[in-house]
Design a protein around this nucleic acid. Structure first.
Lengths: 330, 330
DNA sequence: TAGAGTGGTACGCGTAAGGGA
DNA sequence: TTCCCTTACGCGTACCACTCT
């Protein structure tokens, strides 16, 4: 940088102002600096800037849970929004789906890494029930935004309304006349799974119907398939799957047992992933805009970093997309 | 750090040695330092370390192309391998799928960001034909590993053998007696698409069969669906889809036109994404271990960073998984 | 007095290098 | 060889001072 200053015949200080945009740099100086930068191939050193200014323009993203459609869409939205503002994203994806000691240690380690790197904020995508206290100490000192079905005490939350999604999905089925509705839920440690289940129960209650015994999967098609092999097909007329992939696996299992949607049962999923409309039959699903959710999460943490202000909690609303996997009860 | 030294009654230098593991620190000093670190809640500052040592223990990952199963799996493998060695990942996902000027500018900008952040190396996941020259200047000075169907001049490459995958998929069909085989290919800018197409052509040539006019998609199920609506169903007896998602869309379109696999035609995909076995019918596909590919890419760049040595190019081999979407020609 | 434009100095937090017991 | 210390940076920015309209 001193070199640039020398070539441009200004002080290093002025070059710094040129890059940060703080303070006054005259037009001629500006031009000479630009020329010198081009000539020398100079590139500002973010590390040094970060050390001195204690702002890194970097956000840590902690992604918990196995890699799936929703998670990556969120990361895509985060990434695009970050790039648009010049921020970098330090991403740690943890393939954990439980809250045992090892998993918590991994989370702690990833968070330590972010703190050591002096990130300006942390986004936690779909935190577990049980990891809350790991964030406790952090959000006193650093902006934290969770992407979560529910707002947490100290952190801001960008929320996809899982409760509403569960309600919407189940109401779609009750609206078609179904009362014996099976719920294929996600993991109990997942806020989204819990909230979708609540929505399911409340929608049933509107019609005085009883929930059937809960069947659990882990969001994967394989777990949906496993569930489909063990359920009693006479116990339900419709299924509300916690996500599209479990619905896919479930349909496959029932097909192998001679039952097909929508003739033998109706099924609705959540996410409306792009593939869902091409399933056989095309899957009715509740759309959640995860890309928007990620972008929102970034906007929230960015605002918090810049101004210290908390943006109002933002909610992505679910939208029902009825297709051929659901039909009126016959 | 000086504070830690004061409390532990050693110099800051010794504390530094304690953390970096370079040089000698006696057991008692070690204990006192540990106690002091715990007492003060001290956390080393990676920014300062990076500035002084000019090693950031951070790798930049440039992910090009729309978010899909293969890309996510690669990133997952990279992330896990990085965490295992204490490295951080700066990830930029660019939702671009063409090589127009704007896209190249985005790539350049993302790479600039990595260089400004003084990453120790760059991984480019599935580069385009046409972005090569953007990396030219970089790999002279910085380790670059591409995750690509083909090794590039200056960069190491972790490779999933797309040519072999195309060969395998097509041979599976010719082995079942098919000769009029349609290829639903990925974008022409994609090395993987080009190589899979070569495999297809060579496998046909083994039987003196002619390729049918190429149909292109963009890897998405929607593009497969669009293709399936326009093709002439009498022109082929089998389809080789460039990936599973296009196969899904294609099957859906043909189903709507009254044609079903495997009775009316056979279809094979590539990737063997976890959902593929639950499609209707279960999709024959060529498995590629993208997670392993990502882990391999990290191992290569890590070795290059640590020792300067180039690891031998590593190739992930495809594996055919025949299921019910393919049948002998009737 | 206010504001535009520029420069000098100290400092952020560690590590490399080299010396000394 | 083991152990520890002192000194000099790495590369920018915060802060303040200064000049000139």
């Amino acid at each position: 940088m001193a070199d640039v200053g020398r070539v441009a015949e200004v002080s290093a200080q002025t070059v710094s102002r040129f890059f940060t945009g703080s303070g006054y740099v005259s037009a001629p100086a500006r031009e000479r600096i630009e020329a010198a930068v081009a000539e020398l191939g100079y590139r500002p050193n973010r590390t040094a800037r970060s050390l001195r200014s204690s702002r890194s323009e970097t956000v840590g993203v902690l992604a918990m849970g196995q890699s799936n459609y929703g998670l990556w869409s969120i990361l895509g939205g985060l990434s695009r929004a970050a790039r648009a503002t010049g921020y970098s994203l330090l991403i740690a994806q943890l393939d954990i789906d439980t809250e045992d000691a090892g998993a918590l240690a991994e989370v702690r380690h990833a968070l330590d890494g972010f703190l050591s790197s002096r990130v300006d904020g942390i986004v936690v995508s779909t935190p577990f029930l049980g990891t809350e206290h790991l964030l406790d100490r952090i959000w006193d000192t650093l902006p934290v935004v969770t992407v979560s079905g529910r707002p947490w005490s100290g952190a801001d939350a960008a929320t996809a309304d899982s409760y509403a999604a569960g309600l919407l999905a189940t109401r779609h089925l009750t609206g078609l006349g179904h009362r014996r509705i099976l719920h294929l839920a996600g993991p109990a440690t997942r806020i989204e799974a819990v909230d979708r289940n609540r929505g399911y129960q409340d929608a049933l209650a509107e019609h005085g119907a009883e929930p059937l015994p809960l069947v659990r999967g882990d969001w994967s098609a394989a777990s949906g398939h496993a569930a489909g092999l063990t359920v009693d097909p006479d116990a339900f007329t419709a299924v509300f799957a916690g996500n599209d992939q479990m619905a896919l696996g479930f349909m496959s299992a029932l097909r192998s047992r001679g039952f097909a949607a929508p003739d033998d049962y109706s099924i609705v999923g959540i996410d409306d992933m792009p593939d869902a409309r091409y399933f056989a039959p095309p899957l009715s699903s509740v759309y959640l805009d995860f890309t928007e959710l990620g972008a929102t999460a970034f906007a929230m943490i960015h605002e918090r970093i810049r101004t210290g202000e908390r943006l109002e909690r933002r909610i992505v609303e679910p939208v029902l997309r009825a297709r051929e996997s659901t039909a009126p009860i016959g």
